[in-house]
Simulated assay, not measured.
Amino acid sequence: MDSRTGRGLRRAVIDFASDADPVSGWVTTSDGEQAFSGWLELIQILDQARTAKPAPVEERGLDEEEREHGGKGAF
């Protein structure tokens, strides 16, 4: 939980082609990777990521030690 807002946070990584017109690339979240082309598709993907339920820990690619300690970088 984010102490500044009192809300849970979701991480989304955006990789985009610097020379593309319209803007295009990929958004990666704990639920997987989605391609986008154009600002509206990017906004839709980010909104879906914002409202989606987080994937179970088993589906996030954590190894056994990371699951035992609460996730990546938790120990």
Rank of each mutant, 00 (worst) to 15 (best):
M1A: 14
D2C: 12
D2Y: 04
D2H: 08
S3W: 13
S3V: 09
R4F: 14
R4C: 07
R4G: 07
T5M: 03
T5S: 15
T5D: 00
G6H: 03
L9V: 15
L9C: 09
R10F: 08
R10K: 15
R10Q: 11
R11E: 11
A12V: 04
A12C: 09
V13K: 10
V13H: 11
V13Q: 11
V13Y: 10
V13L: 14
I14F: 07
F16I: 04
F16W: 12
A17G: 05
A17V: 06
S18F: 09
S18L: 12
S18N: 08
S18H: 10
S18R: 13
A20W: 09
A20I: 05
D21A: 13
V23P: 06
V23E: 01
S24N: 07
S24A: 15
S24H: 03
G25P: 06
V27S: 03
T28W: 00
T28R: 13
T29D: 01
S30Q: 11
D31T: 09
E33L: 08
E33R: 15
E33H: 06
Q34L: 10
Q34H: 09
A35T: 06
A35K: 07
A35L: 02
A35M: 04
F36M: 00
S37A: 13
G38Y: 02
G38H: 03
W39K: 05
W39L: 15
L40F: 09
L40W: 08
L40G: 06
L40A: 11
E41R: 02
E41H: 04
L42E: 06
L42P: 02
I43G: 02
I43K: 11
Q44T: 12
Q44D: 15
Q44W: 06
Q44K: 10
D47T: 07
Q48P: 00
A49K: 01
A49Q: 01
R50S: 14
T51I: 13
T51C: 02
A52Y: 03
P54G: 03
A55I: 02
A55P: 08
P56K: 12
P56H: 10
P56W: 07
V57E: 14
V57L: 15
E59K: 10
R60D: 05
G61H: 03
G61W: 05
G61R: 03
E64F: 13
E65S: 08
E66L: 04
E66W: 08
E66M: 07
R67N: 00
R67G: 00
E68G: 04
H69R: 12
H69G: 02
H69W: 13
H69Q: 06
G70D: 01
G70S: 02
G71N: 03
G71F: 04
G71Q: 03
K72W: 15
K72L: 14
K72H: 12
K72D: 09
G73A: 11
G73H: 12
A74L: 05
A74R: 14
F75S: 08
F75P: 06
